[in-house]
Simulated scan of single mutants.
Amino acid sequence: MQLVSLSHVNDPATTTIYPGDPPFELETVATIERDGYYLRFVRQGEHTGTHWGAPGHFNQGEPLADELDLHDLHRPAVKIDVREKCARDPGYAVTVADVEAWEKRHGRIPDESMVIIWTGWDAKWGTAGFTRAHPGFAVETARWLIGTGRVGHRGGTGTDAFSPDVGADETFAVSRLIYQRHRISLEILANLQSLPETGAHILCGGQINRAGSGSPALIYGLLP
C-alpha cells in the first residue's frame, strides 16, 4: 500500500488556533551546544492543528482517547469533493443528496467508514480566512450517516476545516451526534488531493493521553 500524510506541520508562525483554545508554543529547553542534546517544551491544546477527537470531547460518559480501540483509529475512508459548492457558500452544509450523488458514481459507502469532506479549507491554513465561517455537514446528513450504518458504531467524519459542524453553528449539533459510541472526528486535514474517493483507509496516530479528548495527530491515508 502507498502511504500519504494528511496532516499539517505545526508551526507557531502558521498554526491556526480555534478561538478560545490555548496558544501553540514551542520553547527550546536544551541545545546540543549547551546540553549535548536538543529538546523543546511543547504547549498546545489536544485539538491543535490536524487532530482527531474522541467521543467524550462533546458527550459526558462517552469513551475518551485511552478508552478507544485500535480499530477505532484505522477505518475505511471515502472522500466527497464539495469544494465547488463551498467556494460559492463558505457556510455550506453537505446534504444527504450530496452523499447520494457521490454513491451513484462510486457505490455505497462501506459500513463504519470515515466520511471525509474536501471543502478546500486546507488552502486557507495559516490565514485569517481559516477561522471564519466554514463548511460542514448538515445535521440531517449526520443523522442519516449514523442511522444507515455508513458511519455506524466506530466510523466517523473528516474535514479539512475546523470541525464537522458548519462554522455558524454554536451548538455543535453535528459534533454531538458524531461523537458518540466509538465514532471519532478527523479535523484540519491536509493534502486531501492525494486521497482517492474510495478504496483507501485512514490510520490515526498521535499520543494517547489518559482521559484525553483527542490528540494532535499524524493522520495517514493508506492507499491500495
Rank of each mutant, 00 (worst) to 15 (best):
G120M: 03
K124D: 08
L218G: 12
H153C: 05
T141W: 00
G45N: 09
L68G: 06
R154N: 13
I17Y: 06
I80P: 00
H134S: 02
N10G: 08
S213Q: 11
P90F: 06
P55V: 11
R181D: 09
G147Y: 04
P110K: 04
P90I: 04
A133K: 04
L73M: 13
K104N: 03
A93M: 10
D81Q: 08
G199P: 04
A128N: 15
Y38I: 08
L73G: 04
A123D: 08
M114S: 01
E140V: 01
S194C: 02
R75E: 00
P164W: 00
R108F: 09
K104A: 05
L192P: 00
T159K: 03
T14P: 09
L189N: 02
F24S: 03
R150V: 06
W52V: 02
L192F: 02
G129H: 06
S215V: 09
R154G: 03
E25S: 11
G136Q: 12
A65D: 11
F172L: 15
L26G: 10
R150M: 10
E112Y: 02
L186G: 07
G45H: 10
I208H: 09
L189C: 06
D21N: 14
N191W: 05
Y220W: 11
Q2G: 09
C204G: 04
I117D: 00
S215E: 12
T127K: 08
L203S: 08
F41V: 09
G155S: 06
R83D: 06
Q60E: 15
S5Q: 11
V94N: 01
I188N: 07
T95C: 04
R83K: 15
K79S: 01
Y220N: 04
K85D: 10
P23I: 07
T31I: 14
A217P: 07
M1R: 10
F162T: 07
A97L: 05
A54Y: 06
I80Q: 00
D35V: 08
A217W: 02
L218I: 14
H134K: 02
T31E: 13
G120Y: 01
R150W: 08
R150I: 08
D165N: 15
A128G: 12
K124V: 05
A200L: 03
A217T: 08
R40A: 13
I117V: 15
Q207P: 05
G61S: 13
E187F: 00
V96H: 04
V4R: 05
G212Q: 11
N209Y: 14
T171N: 15
G156C: 10
V42E: 14
L26H: 05
P164R: 01
E140H: 08
P63N: 10
G20V: 03
G158M: 04
L70C: 10
Q193A: 12
T159P: 03
A133P: 05
V151Q: 00
R83A: 07
I17L: 12
T16H: 07
R75Y: 01
D169T: 11
H106C: 01
